[in-house]
Structure formats: structure tokens, C-alpha cells
């Protein structure tokens, strides 16, 4: 059935190098409903990023199935947007032209692409910075450009691999608020990998916890916070404290048991 946006079914990923075989993920099963915001949290090296690469088709599963909207994933998928920890911008292109790279590669009609870029620039607060080169922009602004580029073609699924990991704490909080708003405005499905439990809980409908080596799903937490989430008040909600504590206990316990 085509009900789920992302479906990962009993997947194992093994990397084979000359010295040894490494099992990055084992028996991972997870499902993401269309329009849902799901975060993946876990310790470093647990294979969180590998999960996103699986969903995008950049990496094949050793065993098990990966499906996007019911369609099996073989090879890189075009119907996604990807944001990395590094903004990965082309330094010879202005912010606007970096965003439009997406349209050029996909050969989208230039007029519509330009209109969409303007819309996203407005939405992400990049107005006034369209013509700046990446090195003239701060880390937060660069990441906004990367986000616009990922959203240009209105992908049904947005994959984000620790997008705010390199930002300072305050900028990160701002970006969290903006991402939440942008997600609400676009209605896209988001799969976010993060180290920050607070970020995961604030943003998500659901948090998937991954344990380390080999990575496997350690549990899923539904976040029962209202749709409208003001940053400060949300942080003070008992539900927020409950969810973050639950995740912390779980991941902490899993790590201690190792």
C-alpha cells in the first residue's frame, strides 16, 4: 500500500572494508506518515545518517526493503530534498543561484522556479541576501540557503542530516522555530537526524531512538504537544519535560548497558 511516506522494513546495512565488516544498522523498521515530522536521535556513530542515505537511495540496504510512498527505492531518488550538516553550497554562486541549482539540474521551467525561489527566500528570511556569495553569509544564513534549495521542487519528503549541528546554540534555536514554521507552511514530510534531544522533541510529532553499534531502533516516542509551539512556553510544558526525560533515560540506559 502507498500509505506511508517513508517505510523502512527490517533493514540491515553492512559496510565491508578490507580490514573488517561493520554492521551499521540491523533490523531497523520504521514508518513515517505523509506530512509527519519525525526525528531520529541517537549517539554518535549509531547509523542515523545511514538511515537517511537509505531513504534517499544514496545507499542500498544489505537486506530488507526501503519504500517511498509505497515504491521500492533503488538508486538515488529525485522526489526528496536533502540538507546536510554542512551547507554544501557552490561558492561561486550567489545565494539565489545556489537555490536555483535544484531547478537547473531538474530542468524545471525557469519562470516558475524563479517565483518559487522568491517565495522561499521570503519564507526563510533571506530577503536582501539573495546576491551574496556563500562566504559572505553566516553559518545560519548558509543553512537557510541549503534549506531553500532542498525545498525548491516541493519535495514530498525532506531529509535533514543534523542541519543545525554546526550552528551556535542561539542561532540553532532560531532555526528550530523557523523550521517548525516552514514545515507547517509547506506540509512536507520531514525526517530529521539530530544529536539534540530538545531539538527533536520541539520539532517532531514522533522521535525515533536509535541505539549504538549496531544501530537499531531502541524505541519510539510520540510527542503530544500542540501543533502551535512557541519556543519558550513549549520548553516549559510538562509534556516536553516528560518526553525529553524519557528519551534521555532511554538512550542513557542503552549506552550504560553497553
Amino acid at each position: 500500500m502507498a500509505g506511508y511516506a517513508v517505510e523502512i522494513d527490517d533493514v540491515t546495512v553492512r559496510f565491508r572494508s578490507k580490514k573488517r565488516d561493520v554492521t551499521a544498522l540491523t533490523d531497523v523498521t520504521m514508518r513515517v506518515e505523509p506530512g509527519e515530522f519525525v526525528s531520529i536521535v541517537g549517539p554518535s556513530g549509531c547509523g542515523k545518517s545511514t538511515l537517511l542515505k537509505l531513504a534517499s537511495g544514496l545507499l542500498p540496504a544489505s537486506t530488507g526493503d526501503v519504500r517511498l510512498f509505497g515504491e521500492p527505492v533503488h538508486g538515488p531518488r529525485k522526489d526528496i530534498g536533502y540538507v546536510f550538516q554542512k551547507a554544501a553550497l557552490l561558492e561561486w554562486r550567489s545565494a539565489r543561484k545556489n537555490i536555483l541549482l535544484q531547478a537547473e539540474m531538474r530542468k524545471l521551467p525557469p519562470k516558475e522556479a524563479a517565483a518559487r525561489a522568491d517565495e522561499l527566500i521570503e519564507m526563510t528570511g533571506l530577503s536582501g541576501f539573495e546576491d551574496a556569495l556563500p562566504h559572505e553569509l553566516s553559518g545560519g544564513m548558509q543553512q537557510r540557503v541549503a534549506l531553500c534549495r532542498a525545498l525548491l521542487h516541493r519535495p514530498p519528503v525532506l531529509l535533514m542530516d543534523e542541519p543545525f549541528g554546526a550552528l551556535d546554540a542561539l542561532t540553532r534555536e532560531q532555526m528550530n522555530v523557523e523550521l517548525r514554521r516552514i514545515w507547517q507552511e509547506t506540509g512536507t514530510t520531514v525526517l530529521l537526524v539530530t544529536h539534540s534531544i530538545a531539538e527533536a522533541v520541539y520539532l517532531s510529532d514522533q522521535v525515533v531512538m536509535i541505539s549504538a553499534r549496531p544501530g537499531t531502533v531502541a524505541g519510539v516516542v510520540d510527542v503530544n504537544l500542540p501543533v502551535e509551539r512557541d519556543y519558550g512556553p513549549t520548553m516549559a510544558e510538562p509534556e516536553f519535560a516528560k518526553a525529553t526525560r524519557h528519551i534521555r533515560d532511554h538512550l542513557g540506559a542503552a549506552a550504560a548497558a553497553e
Binding site: S56, L58, P76, K78, I80, F84, L90, E104, M105, R106
Partner: peptide, 27 residues
Amino acid sequence: VDPEMLQLSSTMGAKSGQTFWKIRFPA
């Protein structure tokens, strides 16, 4: 070239010629 840039390019459905002229060569 940043390998992530190349991965990104493949999620954009870029042909290898496009990746070369728009990313690799200028870089």
C-alpha cells in the same frame, strides 16, 4: 569537490554532464 555536493547532485537527478559542468569543473 565536496562528496556531499556530489550526493546532493544525484538526489537532484543530475546527469553526469550536468554535475561536471555545474559543479566539478568550476570547483
